[in-house]
Every structure is written in C-alpha cells, then in structure tokens.
Write a protein that binds this DNA or RNA. Structure first.
Lengths: 229, 229
DNA sequence: CGCAGAATATGATCTAGACATAAGCTCTAT
DNA sequence: ATAGAGCTTATGTCTAGATCATATTCTGCG
C-alpha cells in the first residue's frame, strides 16, 4: 500500500514480464490501479506514462492501456564530442586540421541540405587522435550562408565541432549510421589498409529551418558503438 | 499566463537556444518559474524534468538547475523486428532457415554471455528477404540451459526472433553496431561481393540475470540506420 | 441502412499543498 | 582546526480533486 510511482512501475513491469498481463491484453484503468496500489491516480499515471515512453505499453484515450504485442525495442545512444569520447577512455586527445577550402557546395550536399543553387560552403577535413593513434576522420561542410562567421574561425587548433557547439547551442539533427570501405585517402589518414570496413556516422543539423552543417565521421576499423537497454 | 507544461518546456528551450540562458548558467528555480508562467510548480517541474531527460539541462537538489555546457546529444533508435522493418517499407517479407545445429557453445560465446564450461546452445542461421531480395542475415545462438523449449521449436516457418519475443516478453540487452566485411558465406547469402562492407548489429539479451540469446544481424551492403533528434 | 450528433469512458494535464531527500551552509564541541 | 549536528533550500515525489481532450459507442433522424 502507499506505493511510489517507481514501485508501481516496477510492479506493472513485473506482471508483464511474468506473463500475468499477456501481450496485447488490456490493463486495468488508472482509477482501478490507483485503488489497488493504494495511491493517487497521478502516481499510477506517471508510472504508466513512463512505461509508454519506454515502449512497453500503448495508451489510448477511451480505448484504455494495453501491453504492446511486440515491445518496441529502442536503444539510446549518446553522441559525445570526440574529445570527451577519447578523454573518457583515459586517452590523450589530439586534433589536427588536414585541409580547409571554400567551395561551391557540390550537388549531393545541396540536395541533402536543401541549399540554393550556388551556395558557398566551407569544407574541412580533420583528424582526431587518441594517444597518438588515429581515432576518427571528420569530413565536414559548413553552410556559409547561415554561418558566415565560420569563414574567419580558426580551425587549426580546435575542431569545428567544438566551435559549432559554442556558436549554436542547440539544433535539430538527422543522423545515420552505415558501413563503408576505406578509400585510399581515408586509409592513409586512419593508418589502415584501403578496403578495410569502417563505421561511419553522418549527421546533418538544422537551426530554425536552415541547414548549417553536414559531417561524415569515420572511425578507425574495428570501432564499435555499444549501449545497454 | 496559465501555461501548459508543453508551453513552459518550449519557452525554456527557446531561451536556451536563443542564448538568453547561457550554457553553464543557473536557471531560476521552480517556484520563481511557476510564478512567472502563472502555473503550478508541478507543471514547471514536468517541463524541466523532460528537458533534463533530453539532456539539455542538469538538475541537482539544492544546487539548482543549470544549462548543460555541452548538451549531451543522444539519438534514439527503434530496433524493430525485421518483419515489421520490411513490411513498414511496403515490401513483402519472406523468411528462410539456412541451418540449425545444437553445439557446445564456442569459447567466445561463453565468454560473451558468461556461460558455464559445457553449455549447450542452439545455433541458427537464417535469412530475411524483402520482395525476394536478401535483406538481413541472422546468425543466432540460443542458450539451451535457460531455454530448453527452443530444442523443440520449429524455426523453419518463422524466425527465432518472433519465437523469442513471444516466449520472453521482456529482457535487458546489450547492443552494438559495427562495420564488417562480408566473407564468402555471407556474400553468398546476401547476394553481394565477398569483401563488401556490411553493417552489423550484435545483440545479447538477458532475462533475470541469465543470458538467453546472442545474435549477429548483418544487413545487405548499403543499409543505413537513420533517426532524427 | 447510414450518417450526424450526443453520451461516455479513459487517458492527459493542471492545481495547491504537503512531505521527502539531498546538498550546501553554519555553528558548536571537541 | 575539524568532525559532526542541525538548519536551509531546491528539487523530487505524492495527494486529492478537478478539468480537458478525444476515441469509441450509442442514439435518433432522415
């Protein structure tokens, strides 16, 4: 009696995992649960809301709450700044600028970021090292229409990521993971064989509707991205 | 006045993105905010709690709430069943069992799942097709100590994933993404060249402390995993 | 029979107030 | 000086009651 929302949540979870409330079946409504747990309805509500967020149950007004037939399994990944990713492992971080150029944005980039016909972009290629070993290759494009200040920023000492985080505190992003082969240039930078399989992250970010940057991050071969849930 | 928790959340977010509340700075406390928004403290609390969940602010009792210096960017990925992943794209799903064997768990698997010395495991290799094209290769091990029923299950018509979801409604999992090269066998199954870069997901799941399954899912070359945040 | 509008059940959210808990502070006794 | 007791403060959680929003079902009219 007098359960906390954590206890209620745990108990409901338990009943689901134990099979007492089968997948697809209807769960008692908030009022009934509140009574049976001897707590307020808001407490049950919070427990249920969190379970719904976690993808375990499905709630619909009037229709009630049911256990999801196939729980939506979702994983959450932290996307850290490379610097912290490396330093958190206890390794020493080093940054280096490989190349810098101001170009017209190529077609694929204009398409991807919905840029105008002759949009100018700053193209940077950088490397991030952990204890002196190549860790991540960064191939970045910055939209100069939206971020003209980038033209004058100095990217020889610190990476564009840190500059961007400081300049644009928050933005929406589209991120995608894939596998690719290291070409000659990448292989040289990452000190691996050309043709090695590499894990790549691509991220495009927008701020108030305008695309500001696109980046392709390529990790040294063997990199894994792990999480628990 | 009389703001909803969504409005409060949006407004706080806005102040942060606009730089009005700088990274690292202290935000007014709940009571003050509730007054200024003309709502109850619980409303502000919910807005702030969600922002904290999203990694935008950091809250500590007594110390107050501050804007995170470098927002923890996190992406959430749904890990769907292959069947729904394929059907959601409007393609026709087909499943096929490649091989089935009961073996002693190999050393790497025992280590990974913390199994005993002579643990028996069911080893399945399956293929999932979208509109007849190879989509995903599944290399799965099921711990027979914990799931002896798997010995008698029929995996020729439906995949082990669906069987497992039905048998064990919920479990904790460790998931990791990486890039690999297709070897000869994989290349044959996925109808691609040996040496093609492939995206792989590995997942180990536990139920009440016991490992029940380990799976390596390999997607056809070119597969991307995308999300927005 | 079919559709528009009313009734209803249920989750979604809000309120005002209370107590719990952690963390920082000050003061006191050793 | 320092360990610890106790105060203060901000967030965390709970309560009981209420209103709102909406999907579903029911009802009556054409």
């Amino acid at each position: 009696m007098k359960a906390t929302y954590r206890e209620v949540k745990a108990d409901i979870l338990c009943r689901i995992t134990k099979g007492q409330w089968a997948p697809g079946s209807l769960i008692p409504n908030e009022v009934e649960l509140a009574e049976s747990y001897g707590c307020a309805r808001a407490t049950v509500n919070r427990a249920m809301r969190e379970l719904a967020d976690d993808g375990l149950i499905e709630r619909r007004r009037k229709a009630g709450t049911r256990v999801r037939a196939s729980p939506v399994r979702q994983a959450r990944f932290d996307i850290p700044l490379v610097r912290s990713e490396i330093e958190d492992k206890g390794a020493e971080y080093r940054y280096s600028l490989v190349s810098r150029a101001i170009d017209e944005a190529p077609g694929w980039l204009r398409a991807r970021l919905q840029l105008g016909a002759d949009a100018q972009a700053l193209h940077l290629v950088c490397m991030h090292y952990a204890n002196g070993d190549p860790f991540q290759h960064e191939d970045r494009w910055i939209n100069l229409e939206v971020l003209p200040q980038a033209r004058d920023a100095d990217f020889t000492q610190t990476g564009p990521n840190e500059w961007l985080v400081a300049t644009i505190p928050f933005s929406t992003a589209e991120i995608s993971f894939s596998a690719a082969l290291a070409d000659k240039e990448l292989a040289d930078c990452l000190a691996c064989e050309a043709g090695a399989p590499v894990f790549t992250i691509e991220r495009a970010t927008w701020f108030e509707g305008d695309a500001n940057t696109f980046v392709r991050l390529t990790y040294r071969p063997g990199h894994r991205m792990t999480t628990r849930y």
